[in-house]
C-alpha cells in the first residue's frame, strides 16, 4: 500500500489510527501489532493482537522510522505497537518549549 502524506491509516485488528506526517523515501510495510495497516475506511475485523502487553501506540505522539524517514502521528490510541519492515518505530522525542501562544 502506498503511504502518502496526509493519508489516514488504521489497524485492522485494534483501535489505532494514524496520520502520515512524512511519507517514507522507499516502500515500506507498516504494521501495528504485526498486522499491516490499512486505509482508514477499509474493513477492520478488529480481532485484537495476540501480544498486547506493551505500552501500545499513544494518541498525539509522533512515531518516526529513521531508515525511511516515515513519520506518523497517532490520532487514535490502541494496544498495538508500530513496526516498519519489522523494525520497531520509536516515539519522536519533542523538546518541550515554553508556551508562546
Amino acid at each position: 500500500m502506498e503511504i502518502k502524506a496526509g493519508s489516514r491509516l488504521a489497524c485492522p485488528e485494534c483501535s489505532v489510527e494514524l496520520v502520515v506526517v512524512r511519507p517514507p523515501s522507499t516502500a515500506v510495510v507498516l504494521t501495528c501489532g504485526g498486522a499491516e495497516l490499512v486505509e482508514a475506511g477499509a474493513d477492520r475485523p478488529g480481532g485484537g493482537h495476540a501480544d498486547a502487553s506493551g505500552e501500545g501506540t499513544l494518541v498525539g505522539k509522533r512515531y518516526a522510522d529513521e531508515d525511511t524517514g516515515l513519520e506518523v502521528l497517532c490520532a487514535k490510541p490502541g494496544p498495538g505497537e508500530l513496526a516498519a519492515d519489522g523494525r520497531a518505530v520509536p516515539i519522536k522525542g519533542a523538546k518541550p518549549l515554553p508556551s508562546s501562544d
Binding site: 506526517v21 498525539g60 505522539k61 502521528l73 519533542a94 518549549l97 508556551s99
Partner: peptide, 24 residues
C-alpha cells in the same frame, strides 16, 4: 497550507499536555 500550520503545532506543542485547570 494545512502542512505549514500543522507542522508548527505538532512540532511545538505536546498533545493534550495541559492540566485540566489550565486556561489561556
Amino acid at each position: 497550507r494545512h502542512r505549514h500550520l500543522t507542522a508548527y503545532v505538532i512540532g511545538t506543542v505536546e498533545f493534550a499536555s495541559a492540566d485540566p485547570a489550565d486556561a489561556a
